[in-house]
Design a protein around this nucleic acid. Structure first.
Lengths: 135, 135
DNA sequence: TTGATTCCCTACCAAGCTGGTAGACTTAAA
DNA sequence: TTTAAGTCTACCAGCTTGGTAGGGAATCAA
């Protein structure tokens, strides 16, 4: 399951997508409109900025805004960033791979099935962007 | 991601599938062969018994064994039992549904996408059984 | 009927994660 | 130089995860 943090992140990103190219948006505005706890949202947005998804301006007239075209920000990227692995097992994760102890990947039925599940999920998540979410 | 507990549960179930119809298997044997901590495994097997997946016999010659034909025990069932929801959001879960606050499901892009992901995963997990894992 | 064997049950625990909050600091515009 | 913003560090309660400890209860065989 996606954490609350991830859900908040998506709410904020969808909001910023709707305001794309309209200048910086206040944290407090996002918090109010999307009903996300202010201080928690601060942390999340900062993290998204450090990851290169968002950018910000300080001082009056400041706020957060998308750094890239929302049509180019994949949902899978956001999930990996805020929530972690998409796969159900470390041994089938593309970005967070860890081999499993005491289990030969070449003849592990669970392994094979989880690769299928991963690919089925990625077929969707890698081909949807923030723009698709905002419709 | 699946918890360690879930991974241990699958290891044990696959082992018991291989020993299906060969009488009770000792917890200690499963623990040894599958490298799962003994006392932790006890808890897991007991839970699977209470859920009706396994049955057991006490005393000499006792142990655990599958209650049903492994070809009839779906992987999705085990995951829900030991790990929880398969969906990525409560508002798209079939067995653990909770509506989301401050979000209209009818016009939530995330919601729609997560339903797709859920269905793609279930198409696999609902159609695989313990028998498939054991091959 | 006693003893060995085996699962069953309750309790406990450390460490890490989740979902936050508090408050001071820095930057930039007016 | 004041004020409006984001930034940073620190802190916290409660829950979950991944276990461990130890005895109790059922069963079987001798």
């Amino acid at each position: 399951m996606l954490s609350k943090k991830s859900q908040y992140a998506f709410k904020a990103l969808v909001y910023l997508t709707e305001k794309y190219n309209q200048g910086p948006v206040l944290i407090s505005e996002i918090s109010r409109k999307k009903k996300v706890p202010l201080k928690f949202l601060e942390n999340i947005l900062l993290e998204l900025k450090k990851a290169g998804i968002l950018d910000s301006k300080k001082g009056k007239g400041g706020g957060y805004f998308l750094k890239k075209d929302p049509a180019k920000v994949k949902v899978a990227t956001i999930i990996r960033l805020v929530n972690g692995p998409i796969a159900m097992l470390p041994c089938v994760s593309l970005y967070f791979y860890e081999r499993c102890k005491n289990c030969d990947e070449k003849k592990c039925g669970l392994h094979d099935m989880m690769i299928e599940v991963r690919d089925a999920s990625l077929a969707i998540l890698e081909n949807r962007t923030l723009k698709d979410l905002a419709l």
